[in-house]
């Protein structure tokens, strides 16, 4: 069964066409990585998948779990099991992180989108403090207003903490490693790996993911990546083996990709990105 199917969508934001005939399939248990230069439309894709107001789908369809979601309100999509880690989430004055996490927990309790083997876990109220301490969050952080005065790393950890509570079936990560120091990248990657079922045997890998990243670094810690895609000017221009594509881009840049020259010597392994993990 197709899990997420994006079928030839074109999307306009503020009168400007950003996504052009964009298509992508992600099956259950697959983790894809999406690469592309700034302004390629990667974040627009995420916001379109969530159904944000200003992201107008002019044509095409989005299906999730065999249901068309193109016109569904954001919260209904989330109820179906889509979760997102934002690159630049807004600061929400007056709403405490602990409060938001509690609401997330309640939402999670109400939704039955979970993969079958998670059912018993649903009965357990998530122990926020426990989860938070795994991310080195103290009570003081939990009592702060969402993202107010958070550092880059704190924003990402707060985002992933919300994912730990929501436990979505499809996780969209928008630059999970940007603005984060090395220690925290490893910490975040470790949790991503868990949320994405990467350490389970393939037949039990029920979670899917789409990771947008600039640096291949975080991928080192995520285990097997199914496929990598290059996005340029609002559409996917190339898809293939993650190691080959990433190494080629690291070496030759996106511009050579435009002429499809980057992969000509892609077999040479870029030393910084070792997928042997």
């Amino acid at each position: 069964m197709s899990f997420l199917r994006i079928d030839d969508i074109s999307v306009e934001v503020g009168g400007k066409l950003i996504l052009k005939n964009f298509s992508l399939n992600i099956d259950r248990g697959e983790v894809h990585v999406l690469l592309g230069p700034n302004g390629a439309g990667k974040t627009t894709l995420i916001k379109t998948l969530l159904g944000f107001k200003n992201y107008k789908v002019l044509q095409g369809h989005i299906f999730f779990k065999d249901q068309e979601i193109t016109e569904l309100p954001t919260n209904e999509r989330v109820k179906l099991g889509i979760g997102v880690l934002f690159q630049h989430p807004p600061e929400i004055n007056g709403v405490k992180l602990s409060n938001l996490l509690t609401v997330c927990g309640q939402k999670r309790g109400n939704n039955n989108h979970s993969s079958t083997e998670d059912v018993c876990e649903d009965d357990l109220a998530p122990d926020l403090q426990n989860l938070a301490s795994r991310l080195n969050f103290t009570d003081e952080y939990l009592n702060r207003d969402v993202n107010m005065g958070f550092s880059g790393g704190e924003v990402k950890r707060s985002e992933i903490l919300q994912m730990m509570v929501l436990k979505p079936d499809l996780l969209l990560f928008d630059e999970p490693d940007s603005g984060v120091d090395v220690e925290n990248v490893e910490l975040i990657a470790k949790i991503m790996r868990e949320l994405l079922d990467r350490d389970k045997i393939p037949s039990l890998q029920n979670k899917s993911g789409l990771i947008i990243t600039h640096l291949g670094y975080i991928l080192k810690f995520l285990g097997h990546i199914t496929r990598a895609h290059i996005m340029m000017d609002g559409t996917i221009t190339c898809s293939g083996d993650p190691a080959m594509i990433i190494n080629a881009i690291m070496k030759n840049g996106f511009e050579s990709c435009r002429q499809c020259l980057a992969c000509t010597d892609g077999a040479t392994v870029f030393p910084e990105v070792d997928f042997s993990l």
Partner: peptide
């Protein structure tokens, strides 16, 4: 929209804020 992306309806999001 951010709160809706955590599963809250529009009204719930407004109420929380």
């Amino acid at each position: 929209e951010y709160l809706m992306s955590r599963g809250l309806s529009e009204d719930e999001a407004i109420n929380l804020i």
